[in-house]
Amino acid sequence: MSAPLLSVRDLEISFRLGTEETAVVRDLSFDLGEGETLGIVGESGCGKSITALSLLGLVPNPPGRVSAGQILFQGQDLVGASEEQLNRIRGNEISMVFQEPMTSLNPVYTVGEQIAETARVHFGSSRAEAWDRAIEMLKLVGIPSPEQRAHNFPHQLSGGMRQRVMIAIALVCEPKILIADEPTTALDVTVQAQIFDLFRELQDKIGAAIILITHDIGVVAQMTNRVMVMYAGRKIEEGPVAGFIRDPRHPYTRGLISCIPRLSMSPSDMPDPLFEIPGVVPAPRELGAPGCAFAPRCPHAMQRCRVQDPALSRIGEGRAVACWLEEEVAA
């Protein structure tokens, strides 16, 4: 097997809170192959978004920084790369679509300009070429009458349209990796489906690998090949999507899957009560305490869970989980 497109090794991201520095992401390793779609799942505050930002060298500094590990993109370590090196990769080889389409576009420039400038910076295109390219991209992401829309300002477009523009910006240089950080959270359900259709269609056309960050298990099932579950800054389960949905191993993953509400079909059925995982994600200050970070919320927590942190162990083809229960089962 050839080297993966992107290989994250033992990544640690720390934030300075007051005088202390706390690692909010720890021991994180994962690979991404060409054209693959990887889902990163977890509740808010699990370190998904900050991991995504670190891939582009955009961890807000201060207070944050990548404090250990490597991010190897085509063999080049992006940790410690210069701004110039990173700028050649950002938007060109690796690009990102953010969660908030309403605020992610600059209000004072036309959407055409915001797409075109990316092409100018990376390809050195002329103004006219870049503008034509912008219109082509608008057409590609399914915006009607792109010649006119290119002259629009962001406030003249709906949320769904703006997210399409963000996708156009991200894809204008045909990147090898597209990171989508909860790209549809702020949008209507019907628009969500359209955006994901668009992602799949464009992935076929451009062949980019996608890292899809979400807390929506349904989206993961539809969109991804492989899933990684994060909790409190660590990877706790990983595997191909089919096995993950059918047979989740970590109690947290099982909890997440049980949280999906089901529509009851027959009118006589009382709807099932909504499932919830009790408690909340630990605050950054509470990280680094001994034991499994999920233990306080875990229905199966044992004595051992509270004192010793379980390591990630392989449990089959491409699957791994960090839970003491697995060892109990194996023993």
Partner: peptide, 11 residues
């Protein structure tokens, strides 16, 4: 967010 977008574009 839009300044972050500008940086993420590699400007």
């Amino acid at each position: 967010d839009y300044v972050r977008t500008a940086r993420a574009k590699g400007l």
